[in-house]
Computed example of a mutant assay.
Amino acid sequence: MIPLLSIQQLQLCFNTPDGVIEAVRGVDLQLMAGETLAVVGESGAGKSQLFHAVMGLLPHNAQARGSVQFSGTELLNQPPRVLNQYRGKRMAMIFQDPMTALNPLLTIGRQLTEVLEVHQGMGATAAQQQALTMLDQVRIPDAHRRLHSYPHELSGGMRQRVMIAMALLCEPELLIADEPTTALDVTVQSEILALLRDIRAQRQMALVLITHDLPLAGGVCDRIAVMRHGEVVETGAVNLMFDHPQHLYTRELLLASRY
């Protein structure tokens, strides 16, 4: 069976005034359709950069080598016309900070309908109805009123729900959630994670959760990949990673999470 996502020997470097920075070093990962994977590691481990490469969202000073295949099709270093057939439609990403990811000058409704108009070719009326339905699905109260709100009028948790709604509009096969609970209080974190679990189960889509929090990853995903200094140092099923971690760094992460 062909993996939904296959990353092979991915290397990612950034050219800077201070020299070349190697952010990702020879990473191999696979994800099957419907599977859930957590990519765990401290800040600077290369987690986000790895999946920015998958989505084709790298800055001009980046150089990527290796292979990223989605359902057997090579995506790494492909032009936007190729990537746009996949990103937003078949794979989508929720970014760390919903306040910067959302356009402060546009209403929530306009930002949602624009996705449907661009990627699905929907008319304005149908797109607005679909946007309203999606806000209901991510459990935003008074969704009709929220369509006319601007990002700054919503709480952090509400903005994150909007980002989830936006990512799900085109019913992707793969959802990548990059630290989706950053800067949220504990109660809201639990609500967002429960929402992701429920939606993933309902839609039977694959999920990648990028996080620094091992216990959080264990509550959402089937499998964990631990990254350190741009490399994957250990992968395994959640129960094995918690009960019998093999790498010293994984054991350190588990120990740190107990305090």
Score class of each variant (00 low, 15 high):
Leu50His: 08
Phe51Ala: 13
Pro59Ser: 05
Gly41Asp: 04
Ser48Leu: 11
Ala33Phe: 06
His52Thr: 14
Leu58Lys: 14
Ala45Asp: 06
Ala53Cys: 12
Lys47Trp: 00
Ala45Ile: 02
His52Met: 14
Gln49Trp: 10
His60Phe: 14
Gly41Thr: 06
His52Val: 10
Ala38Phe: 01
Leu31Trp: 06
Lys47Ser: 02
His60Trp: 13
Pro59His: 09
Leu31Met: 08
Val40Tyr: 02
Leu50Ala: 07
Gly56Phe: 12
Glu42Val: 02
Leu37Phe: 07
Asn61Gln: 00
Gly56Glu: 11
Gly44Tyr: 11
Gly46Thr: 09
Ala33Asn: 12
Thr36Asp: 00
His52Phe: 13
Ala38Gly: 04
Gln49Lys: 13
Leu37Glu: 04
Ala45Glu: 05
Glu42Met: 01
Ala45Trp: 00
Leu50Asn: 03
Glu35Val: 04
Lys47Asp: 00
Leu31Ala: 06
Gly41Trp: 00
Glu35Lys: 11
Val40Gly: 02
Leu37Gly: 01
Lys47Leu: 02
Val54Ala: 03
Leu31Cys: 07
Leu37Tyr: 03
Gly56Tyr: 12
Gly34Gln: 03
Glu42Phe: 01
Ala33Glu: 14
Gln49Ser: 13
Ala33Cys: 11
Gly46Ala: 08
Ala53Val: 13
His52Ala: 13
Ala38Arg: 03
Val40Cys: 02
Pro59Met: 10
Val40Gln: 01
Pro59Thr: 08
Val54Thr: 08
Ala33Tyr: 04
Glu42Ile: 00
Val39Ile: 14
Ala45Pro: 07
Leu31Val: 10
Leu37Ser: 05
Ala53Tyr: 12
Ala33Pro: 10
Val54Glu: 09
Gly46Glu: 05
Gly46His: 10
Gln49Pro: 09
Thr36Gly: 01
Thr36Met: 03
Gly46Asn: 09
Asn61Pro: 04
Val54Arg: 06
Gly44Leu: 09
Glu35Pro: 05
Ser48Thr: 14
Asn61Tyr: 04
Val39Thr: 11
His60Met: 13
Gln49Phe: 11
Ala33Trp: 07
Thr36Cys: 04
Ser43Lys: 02
Asn61Trp: 01
Val39Gln: 10
Val40Leu: 04
Gly34Phe: 00
Ser48Gly: 12
Glu42Asn: 03
Asn61Lys: 05
Leu57Tyr: 12
Gly44Arg: 10
Gly56Leu: 11
Val39Arg: 10
Leu50Phe: 08
Ala38Asp: 05
Gly56Ile: 15
Leu37Val: 07
Ala45His: 01
Val40Asp: 01
His52Trp: 10
Val54Ser: 08
Glu35Asp: 07
Pro59Lys: 11
Asn61Val: 05
Leu50Ser: 08
Val54Asp: 07
Ala38Lys: 01
Val40Thr: 02
Ala38Ser: 08
Leu37Gln: 06
Asn61Leu: 02
His60Lys: 15
Leu37Trp: 05
